[in-house]
Simulated scan of single mutants.
Amino acid sequence: MALSYKTRKKLALLILVVGMPAYVVAAVTLLNWLGARFGRLPILAELAVYIGLGFLWALPFRGIFRGIGQPDPDAPQDIDPK
Score class of each variant (00 low, 15 high):
residue 1 M to F: 02
residue 1 M to D: 15
residue 1 M to S: 14
residue 2 A to T: 09
residue 4 S to F: 08
residue 4 S to G: 15
residue 5 Y to V: 04
residue 5 Y to N: 09
residue 5 Y to H: 11
residue 5 Y to G: 06
residue 6 K to L: 12
residue 7 T to C: 08
residue 8 R to T: 06
residue 8 R to S: 02
residue 9 K to R: 15
residue 9 K to T: 10
residue 10 K to M: 12
residue 11 L to K: 03
residue 11 L to D: 00
residue 12 A to D: 03
residue 13 L to M: 15
residue 13 L to Y: 05
residue 14 L to A: 08
residue 14 L to E: 05
residue 15 I to L: 14
residue 16 L to V: 01
residue 17 V to W: 13
residue 17 V to H: 07
residue 17 V to T: 13
residue 17 V to D: 07
residue 18 V to F: 11
residue 18 V to P: 05
residue 20 M to R: 10
residue 20 M to C: 07
residue 20 M to A: 12
residue 21 P to K: 06
residue 22 A to G: 10
residue 23 Y to I: 01
residue 23 Y to T: 03
residue 24 V to T: 04
residue 25 V to R: 02
residue 25 V to G: 12
residue 25 V to E: 10
residue 26 A to F: 10
residue 27 A to D: 10
residue 28 V to C: 13
residue 28 V to K: 00
residue 29 T to N: 09
residue 29 T to C: 04
residue 29 T to G: 15
residue 29 T to Q: 07
residue 29 T to L: 14
residue 30 L to E: 09
residue 30 L to G: 09
residue 31 L to N: 11
residue 31 L to K: 12
residue 31 L to P: 01
residue 32 N to H: 05
residue 33 W to C: 15
residue 33 W to A: 15
residue 34 L to Y: 01
residue 35 G to P: 03
residue 36 A to H: 09
residue 36 A to Y: 13
residue 38 F to V: 03
residue 38 F to I: 00
residue 40 R to F: 13
residue 40 R to M: 13
residue 42 P to I: 01
residue 42 P to M: 09
residue 44 L to W: 12
residue 44 L to Y: 05
residue 45 A to F: 06
residue 45 A to E: 12
residue 45 A to D: 03
residue 48 A to S: 10
residue 48 A to G: 13
residue 49 V to F: 02
residue 49 V to M: 03
residue 49 V to P: 00
residue 50 Y to P: 05
residue 50 Y to R: 11
residue 51 I to M: 12
residue 52 G to N: 01
residue 52 G to P: 00
residue 54 G to P: 01
residue 54 G to N: 11
residue 54 G to A: 03
residue 55 F to L: 15
residue 55 F to C: 07
residue 56 L to C: 07
residue 57 W to M: 06
residue 57 W to Q: 02
residue 57 W to T: 02
residue 58 A to H: 08
residue 58 A to P: 00
residue 59 L to D: 03
residue 60 P to S: 00
residue 60 P to V: 04
residue 60 P to Q: 04
residue 61 F to V: 00
residue 61 F to T: 00
residue 61 F to S: 01
residue 62 R to E: 12
residue 62 R to S: 08
residue 63 G to R: 12
residue 63 G to P: 02
residue 64 I to C: 00
residue 64 I to L: 00
residue 64 I to P: 01
residue 65 F to V: 06
residue 66 R to A: 13
residue 66 R to G: 04
residue 67 G to C: 04
residue 67 G to T: 05
residue 67 G to R: 04
residue 68 I to H: 03
residue 68 I to F: 12
residue 68 I to C: 04
residue 68 I to D: 04
residue 68 I to K: 05
residue 69 G to F: 15
residue 69 G to R: 05
residue 70 Q to R: 15
residue 70 Q to P: 02
residue 71 P to V: 06
residue 71 P to Q: 08
residue 72 D to F: 11
residue 72 D to W: 11
residue 73 P to W: 07
residue 74 D to N: 10
residue 74 D to P: 03
residue 74 D to V: 02
residue 75 A to W: 14
residue 75 A to D: 13
residue 75 A to G: 10
residue 76 P to E: 14
residue 76 P to W: 07
residue 77 Q to C: 05
residue 78 D to F: 11
residue 78 D to R: 14
residue 78 D to G: 00
residue 79 I to G: 10
residue 79 I to R: 08
residue 80 D to Y: 09
residue 80 D to G: 03
residue 81 P to T: 13
residue 81 P to C: 11
residue 81 P to R: 02
residue 82 K to C: 08
residue 82 K to A: 15
residue 82 K to I: 15
